[in-house]
Amino acid sequence: MISDDQLNKYRVSGEKVRVIRDAIKSNDVVGIVVAWDADQVMIRRPNRRVVKLDRSYDYRPFTEPRE
């Protein structure tokens, strides 16, 4: 699970993140961290839609290559 400190760092910097939900690359969510609570993270996608995702997913900077 991603820490509050790391989420706050992404939110303040406005850095794009990649949320890896499973092994299929097309299922990744790319966007900016908007808010979070104990269970979920809100990500604003490039089309300005907001998506709620579970905190247990893998959150990485968008600039890092996907493994």
Rank of each mutant, 00 (worst) to 15 (best):
D22M: 11
V30K: 09
I24R: 13
L7G: 06
S26T: 10
N27I: 06
K9D: 15
R21D: 04
A23C: 08
R21Y: 06
V29T: 13
R11A: 12
D5M: 13
V34I: 12
K25A: 12
G31P: 05
Q6S: 14
D28V: 06
R11M: 12
D28H: 13
V17I: 15
V19G: 06
R21A: 07
G14V: 10
A38H: 01
I32K: 09
S13T: 15
L7E: 05
R21F: 06
V33H: 01
R11K: 15
K9T: 15
V12L: 15
Q40G: 02
I32F: 03
Q6T: 15
S13W: 09
W36Y: 04
K9G: 12
L7H: 11
R21E: 12
G14K: 06
V12A: 12
K16I: 05
R11L: 11
V34F: 02
A23L: 13
K25I: 11
S26I: 10
N27K: 09
R18G: 06
R11D: 02
S26W: 14
A35S: 13
A23S: 14
K16H: 13
V29M: 02
R18L: 11
G31E: 03
N27S: 09
R21N: 07
Q40L: 05
W36M: 01
D28Y: 15
G14Y: 11
D5P: 05
V19L: 09
K16A: 09
R11G: 03
A35F: 00
Y10K: 04
V33M: 01
R18E: 03
V17E: 00
A35T: 03
I24T: 07
V34G: 03
K16S: 10
I32W: 07
R11N: 08
V30G: 03
G14D: 08
K25G: 11
G31Y: 01
R18M: 09
V12Q: 14
A38C: 01
I20D: 01
Q40K: 05
D39N: 08
V19E: 05
